[in-house]
Design a protein around this nucleic acid. Structure first.
Length: 659
DNA sequence: GTAGGGTTAG
């Protein structure tokens, strides 16, 4: 037994140690192994019931060390002669398959000479293990082999297999399985019926899902939830809400599906409202719910609500698992609070590629390019393979910091070192890197070298760079391509006109304005959001809908007077409506971010940072005005625009006027 | 061995 103990201690060494006072979680494997060690120390011999629960905990852990622990537990299974026990063996199968090690899973299955029901359990384990690692094709192959081996398919087999068809978006296969289910005689069986509804809903065949759902004699909450998720997936959130309201009862999963439905639809405020209603109905939230809630906060830039969500989690015993942690990193980053994002990152020891990618992106958009790149190297050292999104992060860092050579190097390494083919989005980043640095000709050459057809974003990026550098020759070319792909693209006209203004080609400016009028091209309305005391307020330009509108406008008048006295001169070069100079000034005075700031000055404590989220690029005039305001009022202002953050402090901006 | 809800970009 002593030897068993020392071996088990060795087991524990493989799992990262918990830090004192750390709020991060994911200690299931650690606790389970510790319990196992105590059990051995107490002289208790593990039996058929020991390994399934131990392996379940170990299978949930991630990373290289967790894999080593899994192997060590496997050794104990063999040592105690449990390899031929169908339950212990099937737990091994799940663990390996869930980790993506299909060969080891198969080996564990074959090492167990089970027959009858025992064989079904093993094959079911293989199918569900493959599902967990997202290898849905392998799940289906496993089923084929199962049938070939003569093992009986059970209800659970069909449930797992249908789940694979749904998640793998394989409707044709799903329909074949459906046929088999009808022949198999397992129906009526609620779990299988639910799995069928879910498969059709996941595959987007809502008609089939409805027919099955309506034909069910008995429905569970899961039946309703599958249809709700299917409706959300097919873009019918309001219909999903109707169904949600008609449900006889709702559990945590159903509420989460509805909240997440709003998130998927980009209706973040309704997501938060629904979450509040969920609490009102006294349904407890869990980790899944909080991921959606925190994601909604991230998109809204709602830092206060996000902070509140974090407190809610610690009060209600909701763990910061890897999903929640990743969502929190993203939320803090998108709220311009990169320090807190880093705190969450440091507390997480179960990091996956999403974790690394989220923090790299967060650092990049918050203007900390060097750290973003260093973090990328740390990620490699942690043996975490980057994916195509990670590269968007590092390329974004290069763009914002003007690191042209580094950007090119990363871009080339994608294909050469990492075998990740660049997508049109990566080309977009590359064009941005080159363009912002003024290498417009090189950028154009890259576009011509692209293996795919450049989309409108590519040309818009080049055009934006031409505007910054006043190159109307390449700019016109870019605009031409952009308008060819997207004839009513207001950005094309605006940037083109901007560029002509910059190079004093006023006749051309006039021509563009005329075209804007004649074609009836409308600029996407600028909108700024601000969160005050947990409430989200939205302003559009010249907005008068706020109940405090009167006060807001008089505050803004006062602020503008102060600014003008301090030397601010309104810059109307980016105004495109055909009006007098005086009216143009009015247009920029009432831009949405200025209104939001006036409102913030009225309502926030004087030492509080003003955080604004804007849907478009900030205009030059607002940028100038806020810079001066940050100095004059000694006030920190953070504006998140469409692509980056502007941290205004002491009269300057973190973007160094380059955006 | 057990269905329904979760994270990164655009």
């Amino acid at each position: 037994m002593v030897r068993g103990l020392s071996r088990a201690r060795g087991l524990l060494d493989g799992i990262p140690h918990r830090r004192a006072g750390s709020s991060a979680s994911g200690h299931g494997a650690e606790d389970a192994v510790a319990g196992y060690v105590r059990m051995l120390a107490g002289g208790v011999r593990p039996d058929a019931y020991t390994f399934p629960s131990l392996l379940k905990a170990v299978a949930a852990a991630r990373g290289a060390s967790a894999a080593a622990v899994g192997g060590a537990v496997h050794a104990h299974v063999v040592k105690f002669g449990m390899e031929s026990n169908a339950y212990a063996a099937s737990s091994l199968v799940v663990m390996y398959a869930a980790r993506g090690d299909g060969a080891a899973a198969r080996a564990a299955l074959e090492a167990c000479p089970a027959s009858g029901g025992g064989a079904s359990v093993l094959w079911n384990a293989l199918i569900s293990g493959h599902n967990r690692s997202g290898m849905f094709g392998l799940s289906c192959c496993a089923f084929v082999d199962m049938v070939r081996s003569g093992a009986m398919a059970t209800a659970i087999t069909y449930v797992s297999l249908l789940s694979a068809c749904g998640k793998g978006n394989n409707l044709l296969l799903g329909m074949q399985v459906h046929k088999r289910v009808l022949e198999s005689g397992v129906l009526p069986e609620l779990r299988v019926e639910n799995a069928l509804v879910d498969m059709y809903a996941e595959c987007g065949d809502m008609d089939a899902a409805w027919v099955l759902f309506e034909g069910m004699k008995v429905r569970s909450i899961a039946s309703w939830t599958s249809v709700i998720s299917g409706l959300v997936k097919s873009g019918q959130v309001d219909q999903a809400r109707d169904l949600f309201d008609r449900m006889p009862e709702r559990d945590t999963v159903a509420w989460t599906a509805m909240i997440d439905g709003y998130v998927q639809a980009g209706r973040f405020r309704e997501a938060l409202e629904t979450f509040r209603y969920m609490q009102f109905c006294r349904v407890r939230a869990d980790e899944f719910t909080m991921v959606s809630v925190v994601t909604a906060c991230a998109q809204l830039g709602a830092l206060e609500t996000g902070e509140w969500a974090r407190i809610y989690m610690s009060r209600h015993g909701i763990k910061i698992d890897v999903f929640v942690g990743n969502a929190l990193i993203d939320m803090y980053s998108k709220c311009g609070s990169i320090e807190r994002a880093l705190d969450v990152f440091k507390d997480m020891h179960n990091r996956d590629k999403f974790t690394w990618t989220a923090i790299i992106l967060g650092l990049a958009v918050n203007g900390r390019a060097k750290e973003a790149i260093n973090t990328f190297y740390r990620m490699l050292r942690a043996l975490q393979a980057p994916d195509e999104v990670t590269f968007i992060g590092v390329l974004t860092a290069c763009t914002h910091a003007g690191l042209v050579d580094k950007g090119l190097e990363f871009f080339l390494s994608m294909t050469e070192t990492y075998k990740i083919p660049p997508t049109v989005v990566h080309y977009g980043c590359l064009i941005d890197v080159l363009g912002r640095a003024g290498k417009l000709k090189e950028a154009l050459d890259k576009i011509e070298e692209m293996p795919m057809k450049p989309n409108s974003t590519i040309w818009a990026t080049l055009l934006a760079a031409c505007r910054i550098h006043g190159n109307s020759e390449i700019g016109e070319l870019a605009a031409e391509h952009l308008l060819e792909l997207d004839p009513y693209n207001s950005t094309a006209y605006i940037l083109l006109s901007n560029m002509y203004a910059k190079s004093n080609r006023w006749e051309d400016v006039q021509r563009i304005r005329q075209a804007i009028m004649e074609k009836g091209i409308k600029k996407e309305p600028g909108c700024s959001m601000i969160e005050i005391n947990g409430m989200i307020y939205e302003f559009v330009a010249a907005d008068r809908s706020h109940p405090m509108s009167k006060e807001i406008y008089s505050k803004l008048e006062k602020v503008l007077t102060d600014l003008r006295n301090a030397g601010y001169v309104p810059d109307v070069t980016e105004v495109f409506v055909e009006v007098t100079e005086e009216e143009k000034q009015k247009v920029i005075y009432f831009h949405s971010e200025k209104l939001a700031i006036a409102f913030a000055l009225l309502t926030l404590e004087s030492n509080m940072t003003i955080r604004i989220v804007k849907n478009l690029r900030m205009c030059l005039d607002c940028h100038n005005a806020i810079k001066l305001l940050s100095k004059l009022y000694e006030r920190e202002v953070i504006v998140r625009d469409r692509t980056r953050f502007h941290h205004f402090r002491h009269g300057s901006c973190s973007c160094k006027d380059y955006w």
